[in-house]
């Protein structure tokens, strides 16, 4: 039984190793030269690590969001969390131009928290049987927030910055010293691993959760914080990475179900693997130039979303 459960995990680790190696080796600079070690430690290794942390954290945040909302078609990027975090970041940048990174992080997290809370209160008014209205509401809500952010950015000459946050999440700027915030995202996602059972029970419904002696509101708050912090850290460091939190959990769930205790670590590794793959594709497609990983994922993720939406139900 334990061996059976461990198998997907082992497979994911085995798949991740060559991907990480490839990520370390791809680039314009020659690693065999005198500067090879330096390039590796300042640029390649931080980038590879950042991609894996981001992928893992976003995939886990996607699962958490789906358990909170009890809907498969949501992720932080389609519920206004990302745009609200960008809004918080933008407002903090405008209000306190001198503020340190800490202030901005807090502003982004609070923004993400508020945006998600509004989304959750919005969908409470939807008829419960209309499952697809929930992602639709989320998409429009994030669209409205995104338009506000873009407009403020345009008015305040910060459009370049806003454009990166909302449209071109990428890792080409990652070097040592400029990605460490992602550890906080990784830490928040790690919290979800510890709370896996609680989140899974919450997904069974408030009544079941309460019946088992759990406080659904407390678990909900924990989940909200995890989602907001992961999204805010990723937004502030590399910008929006669309659809990863939706695609990876859905596929892992199809293969091994939603017993989060067993599936969350696999989801995290799969998220890291998918993002590494997309990053490598982005680096190779027009070498020596780069495509932002968000552009690659935008196409791939939207395609998979459509497939998930239209695949015949009940055959899994």
């Amino acid at each position: 039984m334990i061996v059976l459960r461990a198998r997907p995990l082992v497979l994911m680790v085995l798949a991740l190793i060559p991907l990480a190696l490839a990520s370390l080796l791809i680039g314009v600079a020659d690693l065999s030269g005198a500067q090879g070690g330096l390039i590796l430690s300042i640029s390649r290794w931080p980038r590879t690590l950042a991609v894996m942390l981001t992928g893992a954290a976003l995939a886990v945040a996607g699962v958490v969001m789906q358990e909170l909302v009890r809907n498969r078609f949501v992720e932080p990027g389609t519920t206004g969390t990302g745009e609200a975090a960008a809004l918080g970041l933008l407002l903090a940048t405008l209000a306190f131009p001198e503020a340190g990174i800490g202030t901005r992080m807090i502003a982004a997290s609070l923004g993400g928290l508020a945006g998600t809370a509004v989304f959750l209160s919005l969908i409470r008014h939807l008829p419960p049987q209309e499952v697809l209205l929930i992602p639709l509401t989320g998409l429009i809500w994030s669209g409205v927030l995104g338009a506000v952010v873009l407009h403020i950015g345009w008015q305040t000459d910060l459009i370049q910055l806003v454009g990166i946050w909302l449209m071109t999440g990428e890792f080409s700027g990652v070097i040592a010293g400029r990605y460490e915030l992602l550890w906080i995202a990784g830490l928040a996602a790690g919290l979800a691993l510890f709370a896996a059972d609680r989140l899974a029970i919450l997904g069974l419904g408030d009544g079941v959760a309460r019946g088992l002696g759990l406080n659904p509101e407390a678990v909900m708050r924990l989940g909200l914080v995890i989602v907001a912090v992961v999204t805010a850290m990723v937004m502030a460091t590399v910008g929006m990475i669309p659809f990863l939190g939706l695609v990876v959990p859905n596929i892992v769930s199809r293969v091994m179900g939603d017993n989060l205790r067993a599936s969350l670590p696999v989801t995290a590794l799969a998220g890291a693997g998918l993002l590494l793959t997309c990053d490598i594709i982005g680096r190779l497609l027009i070498f020596p130039y780069e495509l932002p990983v968000s552009t690659v994922l935008g196409v791939l993720g939207a395609g998979v979303f459509l497939w998930l939406l239209w695949r015949r139900p009940g055959h899994d």
Partner: peptide, 12 residues
């Protein structure tokens, strides 16, 4: 307790 509506979204 067995609640009345036990529709579960999770794939367990």
């Amino acid at each position: 307790i067995l609640p009345q509506n036990v529709a579960v979204f999770s794939r367990l």
